[in-house]
Amino acid sequence: MRAVTWQGRRDIQVHDVPDPRIEDPGDVVLKVTRTGLCGSDLHLYEVMGPFMSTGDVLGHETMGEVVEVGAGITNLAVGDRVVVPFQIACGDCFMCRKGLQTQCETTQVREHGTGAALFGYSELYGSVPGGQAEYLRVPHADYGAIKVGPDLPDERYVYLSDVMPTAWQAVRYADVHEGDTLAVVGLGPIGDMAARLALHQGIRVIGIDLVPERLERARQRGVETLHVEDDDVVEKVFSLTSGRGADGVIDAVGMEAHGSPAPSVLQKAVGLLPDGLAKQAMTSASVDRLAALHLSTQLVRRGGTVSLSGVYTGTHDPMPMQQLFDRQVTLRMGQANVKRWVDDLMPLAERADDPLGLESFATHRLSLEDAPRAYDIFQRKDDGAVKVVFDPSL
């Protein structure tokens, strides 16, 4: 089959790789019909290369048609249409029963002290082949795979794999309610979707980014927008909120934020080290660019909540602890627990009026063969690339 593979830093190539096969009775194999390019994939493209191996198959936002089932599968059949959460969870362990599927005790990658295995996301999360391919093996499919109806287009469902639950969890963790003000730092796919979900709940949204196309896209949905490079962006948010700040703030950027020049140089330097030294540096040092996180802590009101959905990896990154303590700020964070939120989100995905604009959410629908270009334009924020979805049939 054809698949999008990692060949080195900023080197994405499409190659023939072996077809996946059933390896466990709980597996199914899908023919992939849609698979997304996520902002988190760019961390592999740029920063997290030391944890990648040449030929790794990328991608963790996938849906498709079941073409083969393991002997232990009783709730799925060949021909079923399913969405695959980005994490692999068993559904039976203590963590899964708590609704913390990203901490699944069955698939935790204990070698690296990380949570549940993820599709297409480096040795830190299990080196599981990803979904930017023609076919995908899905472990624990009897629990993880989300069966969907036959009638609506793929674009109504594919975002249930990651974008919608990640954005929904970010809004929930921000602890905002109807009539509150939510600031969203970063209007990429997650920030954009979080803004849409919040607006749908009657929450006022102030969106902050540096890409004109992203700002305009959010503005058209009803978001009040600010350019992150405005000298007085914090002052403007306080002015818009009676001098208090936002009730909740979502950092939808993560460790590669613009505005952190010194850590940016450090990230690039670490990427040039031999893998062993680079791994040690990334897991025991301060390597994140914290501009978005620091901005988020400045925007939130006293007693408010900062919700982190952007990925961070450094273990000794500096935080303004005195200010956070004095202002009684709550921090909540983590990978989205997809299955926990599906019942909340499925009705929105299937509503006839498409209130979140899912069918037009992608700015680019491309073939797998276009993946090298897709990663390039998405990383450079070029050509209006906010969300790329691959269609293997093209």
Results as ranks from 00 to 15, higher is better:
158 V>K: 10
259 G>Y: 09
106 T>H: 12
39 G>E: 02
60 H>Q: 07
385 A>V: 15
32 V>P: 03
316 H>M: 09
291 A>L: 09
343 D>H: 09
251 D>M: 11
197 L>T: 04
349 A>W: 00
44 L>G: 10
197 L>F: 10
377 I>W: 13
304 G>P: 06
99 G>K: 12
355 P>W: 00
205 V>Y: 02
378 F>W: 09
200 H>M: 02
307 S>R: 06
185 V>D: 01
198 A>V: 09
127 S>N: 13
252 A>E: 05
107 T>A: 07
206 I>F: 10
212 P>N: 11
269 A>Y: 11
280 Q>T: 05
137 R>F: 10
309 S>Y: 07
230 D>H: 11
236 K>V: 05
313 T>R: 15
40 S>L: 13
342 V>R: 13
31 K>A: 06
81 R>S: 13
279 K>A: 02
75 N>L: 06
21 R>M: 02
379 Q>P: 00
387 K>T: 10
143 Y>I: 00
328 Q>I: 00
166 T>V: 08
169 Q>V: 08
376 D>E: 14
82 V>M: 05
284 S>N: 14
381 K>M: 06
258 H>G: 14
131 G>W: 00
59 G>A: 13
247 D>T: 10
16 D>G: 02
55 G>C: 07
279 K>M: 09
371 A>V: 11
219 R>Y: 08
192 D>K: 04
285 A>C: 02
178 E>Q: 15
363 T>M: 14
264 S>A: 10
231 D>P: 12
359 E>R: 03
252 A>S: 10
223 V>R: 05
75 N>V: 10
166 T>N: 04
170 A>N: 02
187 L>G: 13
115 G>F: 03
61 E>R: 14
350 E>S: 12
313 T>S: 09
